[in-house]
Simulated assay, not measured.
Amino acid sequence: MIKKFLPLLLLSFMSFASIAKNTNYASNSSKSNLSEKIEIIYKSLNANNFVLPEINCFKKAMDGFFNLKEKGLISKDILTVIDFSLSSTKKRLWVIDLSTNTILYNTLVSHGMKSGLEYADSFSNSQSSNKSSLGFYATGETYNGKHGLSLKLDGLEKGINSNARSRAVVMHGAGYANPSIIKSQGYLGRSQGCPAIPEALKAEIIKVIKNKSCLFIYHPTKTYKIASKLMS
């Protein structure tokens, strides 16, 4: 009986810290090992009664996270994942504490008004495009703007989201990102490119993810896969 449960016990004690410490991008062999390690993290996640992100999205998010951590571009063991392949009626934002492998939040998030209606399918790094930008970001500092407490974002991928700060693409709360909007019009309200979240959760989420944590906006478009240098 002990032998039967030993693999599960070992899995539960696998820590993100030990995996991160041994991450190396130098060879195909290490990339294969990293993929296996990411699967272990995924399987050991404490869902906290939330739905898990889709595994392919999570793998790409973790791949970039390790890369950015290694380069010193992020410092926290907090990962925010946004899956824009999902309908805006779904809770498609996750905040994950990788030090405990626990999902802290899973909520709605808006995409840009020119990116699509219910689904986002068009993305841009251009000024005044009113579109969302994909890829990896480092969270910045907070400020109080027209939407109240807001969080600045620094796009880390040239040509993909590098204009985020100059475009004022930030995380903020918005009335149009609340669940009631879905009931009235059939899909979530849209932003000018910002990942806007429900007002009720903005203060909690922003407090957790501010100051150099990783935020990843995912969509399985081939254009991003080809352009991104942060995913293996």
Rank of each mutant, 00 (worst) to 15 (best):
M1Q: 13
I2Q: 10
Q185T: 12
L108P: 02
F66D: 01
A168R: 10
A138D: 00
F136S: 04
V81P: 00
G175Q: 07
E39I: 04
A120W: 03
T223K: 14
I19N: 03
Y119C: 05
R190S: 08
G193V: 04
Y25Q: 03
K158S: 12
K158F: 08
A138F: 01
S132Y: 06
S32W: 06
L11G: 06
H172P: 06
P195T: 10
R165C: 06
I226T: 15
S27T: 15
L8H: 08
A227V: 00
S75P: 05
G112E: 05
L156A: 07
L93K: 10
S128R: 08
G116A: 04
K91C: 07
E70V: 00
D83W: 02
P195W: 09
T223Q: 14
V170I: 15
T221C: 11
Y42M: 08
T80Q: 01
N106H: 14
E70K: 13
S213P: 11
L73T: 06
Q192G: 13
Q192N: 13
A177D: 02
C214M: 08
R167C: 06
S191P: 13
K152S: 15
P179W: 06
N46W: 08
E36W: 01
H111I: 03
K131I: 00
K207M: 07
L8W: 07
N130Q: 11
G189T: 07
N125S: 10
V109K: 07
A227T: 04
S18T: 09
E39L: 12
I206G: 02
S115Q: 02
Y218W: 05
W94C: 04
K183A: 15
P220I: 08
Y42V: 07
Y224S: 05
S15I: 01
G148N: 11
K4Y: 13
S132H: 07
F123H: 03
S128N: 14
R92P: 01
K152I: 01
K229F: 03
K114R: 13
Y25L: 14
I160K: 02
Y105E: 11
N178G: 14
S126R: 12
L68A: 07
I205Q: 03
G116H: 07
C194W: 04
N48Y: 10
F13N: 15
L45Y: 10
E118K: 11
F66V: 03
H172K: 06
M171S: 09
P198S: 09
A168I: 12
S232P: 14
V95S: 00
L230A: 00
